[in-house]
Design a binder for these strands. Sequence first.
DNA 1: CGCCTTCTCTTGAACAAGTCAAAAACGCCG
DNA 2: CGGCGTTTTTGACTTGTTCAAGAGAAGGCG
Lengths: 173, 173
Amino acid sequence: MPEAADLERLLRAAGLRVTRPRVAVLDAVHAEPHLDTDALIAATRARLGAVSHQAVYDVLRVLTHRGLVRRIQPQGSVARYEARVGDNHHHLVCRDCATIVDVDCAVGAAPCLTPSGDAGFAVDEAEVVFWGSCPSCTDKPTPVHLPSPSPAGPHREVRRDQRARQEPHAKHQ
Amino acid sequence: MPEAADLERLLRAAGLRVTRPRVAVLDAVHAEPHLDTDALIAATRARLGAVSHQAVYDVLRVLTHRGLVRRIQPQGSVARYEARVGDNHHHLVCRDCATIVDVDCAVGAAPCLTPSGDAGFAVDEAEVVFWGSCPSCTDKPTPVHLPSPSPAGPHREVRRDQRARQEPHAKHQ
DNA sequence: CGCCTTCTCTTGAACAAGTCAAAAACGCCG
DNA sequence: CGGCGTTTTTGACTTGTTCAAGAGAAGGCG
């Protein structure tokens, strides 16, 4: 968890001007991984006082573009950001509660990490998302939906309320 | 490319009522893979005359839920659908033009990879997306952006205008 | 040190994709 | 072929994100 001076250095090294919003956003991304934009706006405000949501969107765009943060977006989720860059790690996502955790990049016996028949593409990254059920959702398998086991064979209802556990949430800007 | 009777059979086998919108949407998904919802609305209307966008959304939801179609959504793209289900294949996505092509799964069954250290998750699927540059974008590497090689080190501008090559697009409904 | 250029932030609006809800229409079982 | 329950229509609405114009700061240079 780098402190202000380190963050400044990161920004300058990437050729970016150092501004309070940028330092604050970068700090927030370092503080907790996988936050979405709304949460980052809140975290940034907690550090700075006031920032416009637009400023946070802008900062996240340039940080992502310059490779200081990574943007992820599993199906059904909004954009989320993390500071762990350059190691091409992957993610485990819980289908029930949408919790995300990091997993190191699988190497070695990884049958599916090079496409068989690449259709002429120059592939530069293999992004992997592991879907499943997190320990606590595995314990209480049916938090609120699915009164009876789904009648549709092996397919499970996928809950998408990623916004659970957030306040009613004080309207944009 | 199954015909009407086959599609009906698929629907019934999944325990679904057979309606004209459902047959038409299912047919459209079979006709061309990786279409987004807007394109599918258009394709459905080409088959049926008129359908509400809501009907198409609903149909796609139940078809996805019952496993008759698969929904994919690479970063920066809207939801897209394909009829190839059950083989756990993967996708190659071009960073420049957003073209998607299928790649077979080396394993063929659901979790074709296992995370190193699964944090207690019960993983049931490993979704793999290969990012790169398609043959035609590799040839003309800088279609319109990036006048000079990016000043920001090894990171590349990722264009996200997935909606290129679509009509101005006649407003919802 | 202070000015000037250029980039960044604020403000306020717009937009796209998708969801919600009520009522009319239809599929299909008996 | 009649009725029940699911689907579709219609139309409004949310949510996440982007656009645009102008005010405000960062930092190189004199």
